[in-house]
Simulated scan of single mutants.
Amino acid sequence: MQRKSSISLSPSSRYAVLGGGSWATAIVKILSYSIESLGWYVRSEDTLKHIEQFGHNPKYLSSINIDTKKVWLTNDINQIIEKSDVLIVAIPSAFLTDTLKEITTSIKDKFIVSAVKGIIPDNNLTIAEYFNQHYEIPFDNIGIVTGPCHAEEVALERLSYLTLACKSRENAQMLADKFECHFIKTTTTTDIYGVEYAAVLKNIYAIASGICHGLGYGDNFQAVLVSNAQRELKRFLDGTYPSKRNVDTSAYLGDLLVTCYSNFSRNRTFGNMIGKGYTVKATMAEMNMVAEGYYATSCIYSINDKYHISMPIADAVYSILYQHANPRPTIKRLVDQLK
């Protein structure tokens, strides 16, 4: 039996997306197929006005046509909160706390869905943990949307799979029904901890993959690297939150594979530039989008200081990004630890 504080989603629940980037824009496109009135919080007034006038986001995924008859926009985060029951958060983790500071109304009665795939840099908290600790949102009222699904392929309507995670299978299925459309397949799980941390970790491994590509390692080595990364991911999840989860499914392994291999992967691109000799500062200046794995690397390193789980790949990435280690000898040492 669910506690009284838990929320049961219904077909009439009102949905809104928070964020103006590529993934937020992709989610708006997905949900507009199943929701007749969808709220969208876009912080930039110029972006908001452009979308209202021309029906597309001028900065991200501009090929996506936004049905402004179904999607209502605002740059007032409190207005979107008051008019919505379910808040889908798609704001990069590095900017999330500053955005949420604008909230003056209570969100305790809202259902939060994280689409961030990141971790709060200054707190070492996942998005679910952050909302639970700082806004008193019960974990029963938090969902996660994850899976191997790049925003760019959503824009092209290429077949993709998403996993919706909630403590309640009924709520997870309700969300899955909203996200499913002719090019999105969905599945559900109750492992909100596992899928959220897996989404954080795979970004670190994608940076490792990119670094190795930039250094000239080929596909054969990449296969070894990623298979070791999968085992490292499993060790971390089992060591921090044991559960009967299957990490070979798309929410874990699938997301890891696409993030490590796809040319759409900003974390792989970030690592590739590091491997080619760019500094972290130069790489961040060159990229137009946030690479969540950069912040995740430091957070996971700090978290693992408590658990002492063997994570040679994540440790190597940390050494390169934060201790200014030379990528070539660092990866060469890593090579000898892989199987």
Rank of each mutant, 00 (worst) to 15 (best):
G218F: 02
G216A: 13
N203R: 03
N228P: 12
Y217E: 03
G218C: 10
G216K: 09
I204D: 01
Y217F: 14
F236I: 15
F221M: 09
G218Y: 02
N203E: 03
A199Q: 00
G216Y: 08
F236N: 12
H213Y: 09
A208D: 07
R235Q: 09
A229L: 12
G218K: 05
G210N: 09
A199C: 00
C212N: 04
V200A: 09
Q222F: 10
H213P: 00
V226D: 05
V200I: 14
I211D: 05
V224S: 13
K202W: 01
G210V: 09
S227M: 10
Y205R: 02
L225M: 10
A208Y: 04
V224I: 15
Y217A: 11
A199E: 00
A223T: 15
Q222E: 14
V226Y: 02
R235I: 05
R235W: 07
F221L: 04
Q230S: 14
A223H: 04
Y217S: 07
A229T: 11
G214I: 11
V200S: 07
K234C: 14
I207F: 06
H213N: 11
F236D: 11
G210L: 08
R231S: 14
E232C: 15
Q222K: 14
A223I: 07
N220C: 08
G216N: 11
A229S: 15
Q222R: 15
G218H: 05
G214S: 11
Y205E: 02
L201T: 02
V224A: 13
A198Y: 00
V226A: 09
A229E: 10
A206Q: 02
A208G: 12
A208E: 06
V224D: 03
I211Q: 05
G218M: 05
Y217T: 05
S227G: 06
V224W: 01
K234W: 03
K202I: 01
G214E: 12
N220M: 04
Y217G: 07
A229F: 11
L225S: 13
N228E: 15
Q222C: 10
